[in-house]
Design a protein around this nucleic acid. Structure first.
Length: 464
RNA sequence: GGCGGCGUAGCCAAGUGGCUAAGGCAGUGGUCUGCAAAACCAUUAUUCAGCGGUUCGAAUCCGCUCGCCGCCUCCA
């Protein structure tokens, strides 16, 4: 609320309530949306690592203008139409390594709450009915605009809305419940109330679900910057008019994902979805790392070239962990423990400072830079390797980008590697190369090092 | 018009008053190697969009200018 960094203090000792505005179920999640998924995931994972118990919710908006229009166009039943997208959001989250939230409420399942809220607001004088729709009266809520810092007297009215479609008393007011149209009535998209048949509008949905699941005041509310005004202002107005209490202690807004400097959105006709990238051969892990590697309050300019850079960066990390996992242990190194501590300290200091992932990653790269030469001359014993792996695994609980799943060789692959090594010793290059080719066909790259061969999968699988 | 954000190397990106301007990618040179791939090592900004000011000292604070972006109440 202060627009500054603050020291985070939860309301209760170890329990945190966390809410994110989720997507609307009328189109597949584009990368902008994916960034919100990943940022929310990063925050939750980091808080959990810090020992907090996080109740996290992300809503799915499955009842609004877009979903109704989308279902109409597709000639589908609304719930069937939205359920497809909801399932695809969940599968995208899995692909991106996003931990499942405590719950994913759907707007359509909380309409009664929204109607109750509207009742209460009308009763308290914060809202009024006009021609069968219910509007929030902004004049009654003097705190309006605190989050975004807007000055209501100076905004341009009707910039993005055709005000002729509404019968508001004041154009600054916003809609809570909307009178159902004839075609909605025909399809059964309406809810009976004392004001007639209505359906909820966007802003009230988040208020109803966030407070409905997490109580009157939540610790953290996240979403992206472009939703600050009007959506979050309205969400606050509704909730705070209702309860008289602060809706959320901390607001974290992630910046936009851009393409050539422009917001990725259907309006700009530059949408790239996760599935598009998967179809091009990129992995969820690569996309996750791209979305993660910039601090959440900075914009990310997306490009394929950038994804390719991420791929090579990840390859270096993989190379390091493969060596750690696959190479036989050697002599102990006196200082490697200190390197690990330095990495940990820098990592946590950076993450504590508003999730500064760039600096946190630098901690890891610095560690790799120091440890690589040691590994090169086989100067780490078994315990030290296990210790490093254990620490990397800990950091990976937050980042979810390392591959630390051991070096388990399938017997036939192991046999091929052995065969190739034997042939190499005997300088039988033909046999050695054919073994290498065969491994390549199975998606395994062999990397010769001074201490023997290591292997890794070239074609990435989505295992954890 | 109002509010907010951004501009640091070829690209990405930290740093927001004072140690040599982190780190990554790409590049270049070298090491290793049967070949290959990868890896490893070294190296890469007298300068932070421009101009002016404050200061012993500015990428960092202030003012102006330029360029780009987001939001403005039914796109999420």
């Amino acid at each position: 609320m202060t627009k500054k960094k603050e020291v985070f203090k939860p309301r209760r000792e170890k329990e945190i309530t966390f809410y994110s505005c989720g997507p609307t179920a009328y189109e597949p999640a584009n990368l902008s949306m994916c960034r919100r998924f990943v940022v929310a995931d990063l925050i939750v994972r980091y808080l959990e690592m810090k020992g907090y118990n996080v109740s996290s919710y992300m809503n799915f908006t499955d009842l609004d203008d877009n979903t109704i229009a989308g279902a109409e166009e597709a000639g589908m039943d609304l719930t069937v139409f939205t359920e497809n997208y909801i399932q695809s959001f969940l599968s995208d989250k899995d692909t991106l390594g996003v931990k499942r939230a405590t719950g994913y409420p759907k707007a359509s399942e909380h309409v009664q709450d929204m109607i109750d809220i509207s009742h209460e607001l009308v009763h308290k004088g914060y809202a009024y009915e006009k021609h069968g729709s219910i509007y929030f009266n902004i004049a009654k809520f003097p705190n309006y605009g605190k989050l975004s810092g807007i000055d209501l007297s100076k905004i341009q009215l009707g910039k993005t809305v055709d005000l002729d479609n509404y019968e508001k008393d004041n154009p600054r007011d916003f809609t809570l419940l909307k009178r159902s149209t004839l075609s909605e009535l025909k399809k059964g998209i309406f809810f009976e109330t004392e004001w007639g048949n209505v359906r909820p509008s966007w802003h009230i949905e988040c208020s109803a679900m966030s407070t409905g699941y997490l109580g009157e005041t939540l610790d953290i509310h996240t979403s992206s910057r472009d939703l600050m005004f009007p959506h979050h202002e309205n969400e606050i107005a509704i909730a705070e008019a209702l309860t008289g209490k602060q809706l959320a202690k901390y607001w974290l807004h992630s910046e936009l994902l851009l393409v050539d400097g422009k917001k990725m959105s259907s309006d700009n006709n530059n949408v790239v979805t996760l599935k598009d990238l998967l179809a091009m051969g990129f992995t969820g892990r690569e996309v996750r790392f791209l979305l993660l590697s910039v601090q959440y309050r900075k914009p990310i300019n997306f490009s394929i070239k950038r994804l390719e850079n991420v791929r090579t960066a990840l390859r270096r990390l993989d190379e390091f962990t493969s060596k750690l996992l696959c190479l036989p242990p050697g002599r102990p190194h006196p200082e490697v423990t200190a390197y690990v501590s330095a990495m940990e300290e820098q990592f946590f200091t950076a993450m504590d400072d508003d999730l500064n992932v760039s600096v946190a990653m630098a901690a890891i790269y610095n560690f790799i830079k120091k440890t690589n030469p040691i590994l090169q001359v086989n100067h780490l014993d078994r315990d030290q390797k296990d210790y490093i792996l254990e620490k990397l695994n800990q950091l990976n609980q937050v980042l979810k980008i390392f591959k630390l799943q051991g070096c388990p060789l399938e017997p036939e692959i192991d046999a091929l590697i052995q065969l190739r090594e034997k042939a190499r010793v005997e300088k039988d290059w033909q046999t050695a190369d054919s073994a290498r080719n065969e491994l390549a066909e199975r998606g395994i790259a062999v990397i010769d090092t001074a201490n023997g061969p290591i292997w890794k999968r070239v074609v990435e699988t989505e295992e954890d």
